[in-house]
């Protein structure tokens, strides 16, 4: 048992993550080709506009469901809406936000773009704390669009083109289908004024996505409504990111490696549940923590992966000295 635990705590989490991300990418983007279908309540951006999708992003069906006329939405006919939601919760509850860090195809794409930037020897950029505090609120506005726009359609307040308003502006709609050779989403819809505005915004956001994630690690995740939605239910999840504040020296190593610039991870020594709304649960912080058991990932209150001095030294290659032949 101790052996297994040491193996996990000393593991090179980056490599593990890379392969897992690749696996999920293939599963979600090309799953259709292998007759994989994990349903349409998946809590990540595995876009439904992809014809071979192996499990669809929950937001597309959710928006369609919410756009029903109000009396239908509130009747027994909407039991299917409830089932969809419960399925979404069940998927989510097990892995918590690890969906973002390990399974989301859009997240994986950003990590690949980051990899490209690293290869080119260009440094990443960061936000200042005040910028960050403002920007992080945008994802709640996005979530409001996901929920309120289709409901507005259902109530007859908005035109039908608002039905999937978020999807129209989501970069995933344009980018994901490219992986199966489908460029049909790369067009502007001139049918109505609203459709034109929305698809134009979509094009702009796609451009921003590509440029932004080149310079800023996980650029889009700051604005992601799915991330906001996750956070609402994350307290009930089985997988948890925990912190033992007594053991923390506030050295900031975790903050330093955090793609999402979450300051609490280093500075908050009071909370035990340290998962914040921006977190993508990539566990890089746990891997970068040099204090024994200060940060750990728990499943059902059992430590699955915990920070150790030894694990830190191993991952940073500080546990031995490279002997040079000079």
């Amino acid at each position: 048992m101790k052996r297994i635990r040491d193996f996990i705590n000393n593991a090179d989490i980056r490599r593990f993550r890379f392969w897992l991300q690749l696996l999920f990418f293939v599963l979600f983007i090309y799953g259709g080709y292998f007759a994989v279908n994990l349903g349409n309540s998946i809590p990540v951006f595995s876009c439904g506009y992809d014809k071979a999708v192996g499990g669809m992003c929950y937001f597309l069906p959710l928006q369609h469901q919410l756009a029903r006329p109000l009396d239908v939405l509130l009747s027994a006919a909407s039991i299917s809406v409830l089932i969809g939601f419960v399925t979404f919760l069940l998927w989510f509850i097990v892995f918590n936000k690890a969906w973002c860090g390990y399974a989301c195809p859009l997240g994986t794409m950003q990590d690949w773009i980051t990899g490209l930037r690293k290869k080119m020897g260009i440094r990443y950029s960061t936000y200042t704390q005040p910028q960050f505090d403002t920007l992080k609120k945008i994802k709640y506005i996005m979530l409001a669009i996901v929920i309120l726009a289709p409901m507005g359609v259902g109530m007859g307040l908005l035109g039908g083109e608002w039905r999937t308003a978020f999807c129209e502006i989501c970069p995933s709609r344009m980018i994901t289908p490219l992986f199966v050779g489908d460029v049909s989403q790369w067009s502007l819809d001139f049918s109505t004024k609203t459709a034109m505005i929305l698809t134009t915004l979509g094009l702009i956001f796609t451009g921003l996505f590509l440029i932004g994630s080149f310079f800023k690690k996980r650029f889009f995740c700051f604005f992601c409504p799915m991330s906001a939605m996750h956070y609402i239910f994350s307290d009930g999840a089985l997988l948890k990111l925990k912190k033992d504040g007594d053991k923390c020296t506030k050295c900031g190593d975790c903050y330093n490696v955090c793609d999402m610039q979450i300051k609490d991870i280093a500075d908050d020594v009071k909370s035990t549940n340290i998962l914040r709304d921006d977190c993508i649960f990539c566990m890089k912080c746990v891997a970068a923590c040099p204090e024994d058991d200060a940060l750990h990932v728990d499943i059902l209150n059992m430590k699955l992966f915990t920070s150790t001095k030894g694990g830190f030294a191993k991952r940073m290659e500080m546990d031995r000295l490279e002997k040079k032949d000079d």
């Binding site: 050295c251 330093n256 940073m316």
Partner: peptide, 27 residues
């Protein structure tokens, strides 16, 4: 006690990470 952790091994990042080690954990 406090050790340097670096995410991307570029000179600028290394210098910043080093800086943090000498300030943030200091008691």
């Amino acid at each position: 006690n406090d050790m340097v952790s670096v995410d991307e091994w570029f000179v600028n990042d290394m210098v910043d990470s080093i800086a943090d080690r000498y300030l943030k954990g200091c008691t």
